[in-house]
Structures are given as structure tokens and as C-alpha cells.
Amino acid sequence: MAEAEGIRVDIEAVKGVIEEKYNNDPENVIMILQDISARYNYLPEETLYVVCRELEIPISLVYSVATFYKAFSLEPRGKYIINICLGTACHVRGAEKIKETLEQRLNIHGGETTEDLKFTLDAVRCVGCCALGPVITVNQKAHGGLNRAKALKVVEKYEKAA
């Protein structure tokens, strides 16, 4: 598992969250991983061991949860995570074309991250904004009613902000 350069994991903070917010309850493992993921944009390897020790569950269970659910990544992800909605409504309105356009623009495939760690491109199955299709979300903010040109504009906006 690759660690992103410059990312330092604050072990004590992770422990604090597990204890204070989730009472060291193993049933909360998914939400604990979500919180870690929200902070680092991925699950750094050492945090998985912290979770395993604090919750007193085997690392195999933590690993299986971390790899089963789509929300988690073991690889570092970009500052901006672009999710292209490939739900049915977006699909029939041409979501594939948006995907192609962004793949070309960022020069990465779905599921990959740009080398400068600015963008991760991912596909999701429905973000529940079906009336706006095709939709992408960038770090959970939805951008709807897209065509190729509009999709490129959205990316450019974040590029400037990065």
C-alpha cells in the first residue's frame, strides 16, 4: 500500500475518535473508517491497525470491511474526488460521454488519481439527483445538467482553486 507523500497520520486523533465518538464499539467499524477516510481521503495502512487494536477485532475483519464497501480506498486519493454518476437516468442522458471527456481531460481512467494528487475520478451508481442528469459530484457538491463543455468548465474551476 502506497502512502501519500507528506501525509502524516495522527494516531492519537484516530484513537480519540474511536473512543469518544464510537465508544470502542466494533459495530461502528464502518463509520469509523468513514471518518478516517473523510480526514485523509483514503485509509492509510497504519490507521487500519489502530482500528483493529482499539476495537479488539482481527485485522482480517477490518481489511474485509475496508475492501468490501465502495466508499473506501487503500490508495491515496486526490484533493478533489470527482464522482461521475452512472445511474440509469444519467446513463440514458449520456453520462458515458461525460466520463470519456473527463478521462481525456485529466488523462486518467475511472478509479485513478492524477499524479499531482489533485483529482480522483470515480464512477458512482446514482447520487439521487436524477432530475439533473448527467450529474457529477466534486467532494459531495453536485453539478448537474452537464454536457461535455460544462463538465470541462467544472473541472477547470477546481483546477484553479487547487
Partner: peptide, 12 residues
């Protein structure tokens, strides 16, 4: 856990 693509009434 409204997962069906194209359905969002539960969300709303």
C-alpha cells in the same frame, strides 16, 4: 440505503 439507480424519493 436507497440504492436503485434512478430512484431518489427516500432521499427527498
Amino acid at each position: 440505503d436507497e440504492g436503485d439507480p434512478g430512484a431518489y424519493m427516500d432521499r427527498s
